[in-house]
Design a protein around this nucleic acid. Sequence first.
RNA 1: GCGGAAGUGGCGGAAUUGGUAGACGCGCUGGACUUAGGAUCCAGUGGAGCAAUCCGUGGGGGUUCGAGUCCCCCCUUUCGCACCA
Length: 820
Amino acid sequence: MDNSATRDDPLSPAVIAYNPQAIEQKWQRIWQQRGTNHTDLQRAQRPFYALMMFPYPSAEGLHVGNLFAFTGNDIYGRFQRLMGHNVFEPLGYDAFGIHSENYALKVGVHPMDLIPRNIANFQRQLESAGLMVDWRYRLATTDPNYYKWTQWLFLQLFNQGLAYRKQAAVNWCPDCKTVLANEQVVGGLCERSQTPVEQRLLEQWFFRISDYAPRLLENLDHIDWSETTKTAQRNWIGRSEGAEIEFESRKLDGGACEIRVFTTRPDTIYGATYMVLAPEHPLVQSLTKPKQKKEVEQYRERTKKQDLVARKTSTEKTGVFTGSYAINPATEKEIPIWISDYVLMEYGTGAIMGVPGHDQRDFDFARKFELPIVRVVCGERENANTPLSEAFEQCEAGTLVNSGVFDGYEVEAAKKAIVELLSKAGSAKPVVHFRLHDWCISRQRYWGPPIPIIYCDDCGVVPVPEKDLPVVLPFIEDFKPDDSGVSPLARHEEFYRVACPKCGKTGRRETDVSDNFLDNSWYFLRYPSVGRDDVPFDPVVTKKWLPVTSYIGGNEHAVLHLLYSRFITMVLHDAGRLEFEEPFTRFRAHGHIIREGAKMSKTQGNIVNPDEYIENWGADAFRTYLMFLGPYEQGGDFRDASISGARRFLDRLFASVQTMSSEGSPDQSVMRKLHQTIRKLSEDIPRLSYNTAVAAMMEYINVVRKGERTPQRDEVLPLITLVAPFAPHLAEELWEQTGGTGSVFDSAWPSFDPNLAKEDTIELVVQVNGKVRGRVHVSPDITESAALAAALGDPVVAKFVGGTAKKVIFVPGRLLNIVA
RNA sequence: GCGGAAGUGGCGGAAUUGGUAGACGCGCUGGACUUAGGAUCCAGUGGAGCAAUCCGUGGGGGUUCGAGUCCCCCCUUUCGCACCA
């Protein structure tokens, strides 16, 4: 892709060819020598923290999707720098986790060898992309200097009572004899061996994120985030307002007991014809009659073994009767108590009232087991006896029927009235439930930070003292999980045998490692303090630089990473360690790149390796193309054939600078277009509308060169700064060639003059009955009557109007519509 | 099933509050320069029609002087979550 056209043709307008490879190498070297990308964190006057989600350093190397994401952030950061901010744009590596570990297992290389190799490769690729990253603050989550503080973070939660242990199910592959992550379970089968996956109960560490659910939800109203991301978080947190209602029952031993159910539809209680408990509900044993015992036991065994995924994908209802009954507090009738796996122990109270008339799942269950179905709500078209062929779930304009004293109540009023009545009897109370579960951070794996806990026979659970951190992850050859069901570290006595910090007797270290999401839940706090070994984050520098001014990343992290980061920030805020409780002031989700209509995947062989494109077209052209191929927040379609357009644009810009004249004076209409372009970019870049920003620059360069005219210096120079965020190397080169001093990024974004941008004549569209019939060139300030006169002067317009106009709609500066 | 996003030329995509549909780019057609062109430059390029003109933003209704944009119904694609009571 050399510009051989201009090679040795003296008549060619461009005498010197644009050689991106040479220019890019030159400026990357200069940037490094001069520290152009360094941010003085201490002295900065107008701090602007432009954060991008850091990559997982895969063995395949940098993905074009990574580069798309980073370039978008880089443009934003560089623009903010030109706007006078001190921009800090750090980048690092999220290098722990199952992803790396699985890959290491697959290729038979130890992660401790593999990861540094991958990081080196990423580093090379990222540097070639021309990002404005201050590499002095690079971090890797696998660095003991980093995960020391990840462990410290765990201890903070532990000390605040926000970390606790409980039994929880994990996916277990009986063939591979190992714990599987959810991503490794596909359709209920082990991804590798295709064996049905089972559940196993293990003691695991949890964080009480559910305590923070109300706050995590409420704060969403006050942060400037992509709406799509906020919606995803709201759904994930899943607030439901409803009531807990007690149903009386009798245990086998004759003792009374209350079963609490959660419902969002207390208005339908008269239609509750049965009750269902989760199979693992603690009351099941004491409620099961001897006759049903065998069947119940078998059912419980079966659902226990069944893996989580298969259980969730099947909609066919199963269940067994316990033999016991409960009293519906509204109807005072006995209703049978069943158990079924469609009721989840983790949500609500683990028990429901079955209202088959108004819940489709209950309806399916009642149909299958021939339980009575009663209508208690009807809409405008139904009455109390309208038969139900499916559950009637509609609430709006719903009226209660078959509901005793509540007949005729509207649904919403009935909800309130029924809960009120029952609560007087002490058998109901309004409650809010969240679907957000506590965060399980234990991993029975090797490639993560060991959880800093020691178990002592005498002292119990003892946190590792802060001075003993980090608990270093040892190098072990046999890092593969095995049939013991515990972490590989549990096979290494030299690791887990340790003196109890309290009493000194022999204790045993926790051998699980922590979740990868814990590593990346706080990395943005660390960047400005990289290099500080005495604190996780320095209070002074943190106060200055955080919360993050702008965060850009993929929406696949909308619920996990972004929610956990918010949670951790709140915890640290509550502990008095941070002044703010929301980590990211502004967040924007970028889109994803597909290739020629298809998702990029290794199996399809359509993965784009940025290296060859950067080599062929130059990083600047590649960056510009990536930003041009579609709206940044939506992603787009990567097509090889289209890169040439971006490159041609840069070629023309380069050529314009080589051939521009400083003798003549700039053309007024070109200068008008220039100011319109400045305005367009100043508006487009902050809202990440990069594709239209590039289009505007292309349009401008076409105007500058229209009909082979010689560009004037004043027409071209501002474009160098405008293009700088997109094509930083080329901009620096042209800046230098045209006599600029220092870096173009230490200059100022061109200012836009509204007077210069204003057109002196506009094309006014003339419509007759809403259809375009003509155009007149008039002053932008023309009055309605003058515009009408001008319009009627057009014979075509006059012809369509015929007689006189009935009505005229005039939109100043835009159009005139004559209704005839 | 629930939730999100999206359907516009041959293709990627523009159209910020309802106001010229198709900016910009790719591709394509013709031309210039050239030993050559897969370089560069110029002109053209939604469809139909000689033309006047008509038709055109997934489909069907509606509101409006005017709808890609707003409202109702439907279809398709795609990404999350999936028995959350």
